[in-house]
Amino acid sequence: TEYKLVVVGAGGVGKSALTIQLIQNHFVDEYDPTIEDSYRKQVVIDGETCLLDILDTAGQEEYSAMRDQYMRTGEGFLCVFAINNTKSFEDIHQYREQIKRVKDSDDVPMVLVGNKCDLAARTVESRQAQDLARSYGIPYIETSAKTRQGVEDAFYTLVREIRQH
C-alpha cells in the first residue's frame, strides 16, 4: 500500500529536517529553504509493509500558489509548527483551512506536530497545542528532528489516521 503524505507549515519550522531524519536517519543542521522535494521510503507499520511517498513543501509565502496542487494529491498532512515560534503555531489554522477548502472536506487525515521540542526556549505550551488538536479532532505529537524523538511516531500516526479514514 502506498501513502501520499504531505508536510506543511511555516518556513523554518523543520519540515525538511523531520523528513530527512525519518528517511535518512540524520539531522540536517543548516537551513536551506525548500521549494519542493519528495522522498520515498518502505516501512512496516503495524505489520503492514507500506511505501511512504512524502512531499516536503515550501513554507515560504512566495510558493503558496503551489499549495493547491499538492493538497489535492496528498492523502494525509503533517501540519508542523516549531514550539519556539508562536507565529508558526498561529499559521497552522490557515494551512488547515486551505487543506479543507482544496479537499472540499472537513475530515482530512492530519496530525499536528510541534517540532524542536529539544529546545528550552518554548513559547507554545503543550497544552495550547493539545487544545488546538482536540478542537480539530486530530492527534498532537511533539518531535525533535535533532534527537529523533517522536519522528517515526508522527509519520506513522498519520498513516494510521489515513487507514482509519
Rank of each mutant, 00 (worst) to 15 (best):
Y140K: 00
N85S: 09
P109Y: 05
T34W: 03
R67P: 15
Q128L: 12
F155S: 00
A10Q: 01
M66Q: 04
Y70N: 02
R96P: 10
S64K: 11
V80N: 00
S16Y: 00
P109G: 02
Y140W: 03
D53V: 00
Q98C: 13
I20D: 02
S16P: 00
D131Q: 09
E30N: 04
V111K: 00
D153K: 11
T157Y: 12
A17R: 02
A65R: 04
V124G: 05
I45W: 13
R163P: 04
C117N: 15
L22Q: 14
I138P: 02
S64R: 09
M110V: 04
T73D: 12
D131S: 07
V28N: 06
L112M: 14
N115P: 01
K116E: 00
Q60I: 15
Y39D: 02
V43G: 07
V28I: 12
T49I: 08
T147N: 10
L112S: 00
G59P: 09
T123L: 06
T49Q: 14
G114L: 05
G76W: 05
D106T: 08
I20V: 07
K15V: 00
K41M: 09
F155L: 09
K87Y: 03
A58Q: 13
S105I: 15
L5W: 00
T86L: 13
D107Y: 07
K100W: 04
D53I: 00
V44E: 13
Q149W: 07
Q42Y: 07
G47A: 10
N84I: 09
G74V: 04
Q60G: 14
N85H: 06
R127T: 14
F155E: 02
F77C: 03
I23R: 05
D32E: 15
A129T: 03
K87T: 07
M110H: 00
L18H: 02
N85F: 06
A17M: 07
R96I: 07
L55R: 02
D131W: 04
V43D: 10
G14W: 04
L51F: 06
R96M: 15
L119Q: 14
R160Q: 13
K146M: 14
M66A: 07
I138H: 02
D56S: 01
A82I: 04
L132K: 05
Y140L: 09
K100H: 09
Q130C: 09
E161I: 13
H93Y: 04
T49W: 06
E152W: 09
I99G: 02
M71L: 14
R96G: 04
K4S: 11
I83M: 15
P33T: 06
V44A: 13
S38G: 11
K41V: 11
C50S: 10
G74A: 04
F155W: 09
C50K: 03
G11H: 08
E125M: 11
V44P: 11
G47V: 05
E61Y: 15
R127E: 06
T143L: 13
S105C: 15
E2Q: 04
M110E: 00
C50Q: 05
N84D: 15
Y3P: 06
V80I: 10
E97F: 06
H165Q: 15
L112F: 03
H165I: 15
Y39R: 01
I35N: 07
I99R: 01
H165W: 08
L5R: 01
Q60D: 05
D104P: 08
D104S: 15
G9T: 03
R160D: 04
H26Y: 14
V44Q: 12
E61F: 15
Q24P: 03
D104I: 06
V113K: 02
I45V: 13
S105F: 11
R148N: 10
L78N: 01
R96Y: 14
C79S: 02
A120W: 08
P109R: 10
Q128G: 06
E36C: 02
D91A: 15
T73Q: 15
G137A: 06
V7W: 07
G12L: 12
D56K: 01
G150M: 09
V102P: 03
K87Q: 07
R40G: 07
E75W: 05
V108R: 01
E75M: 14
V111N: 00
V80K: 03
R148P: 07
R134D: 11
T123R: 05
P139N: 08
E48A: 11
Q98D: 14
A121S: 12
F81P: 01
V108W: 07
G9S: 02
D29H: 13
R134P: 01
Y156G: 12
G47H: 10
K116A: 14
D56N: 01
G137M: 08
I54T: 08
T157N: 10
E75L: 08
Y39K: 02
V111C: 04
A120P: 09
V108S: 03
M71A: 01
I99E: 02
H93L: 10
E161D: 06
T34G: 01
I141Q: 06
Y63D: 05
Q130L: 10
D131F: 13
R72L: 04
D32P: 03
Y3L: 08
Q98A: 13
Q21K: 09
A82P: 00
L78G: 00
I83Y: 08
M66C: 10
D106Y: 15
L55H: 06
L5T: 08
I83T: 12
M66T: 10
Q42C: 09
S64H: 14
L112A: 06
S135L: 06
T147E: 14
V124M: 11
V113H: 00
Q69V: 02
I54V: 07
E62T: 04
R72G: 07
R67W: 12
R96V: 15
T49Y: 08
I162A: 02
M110R: 00
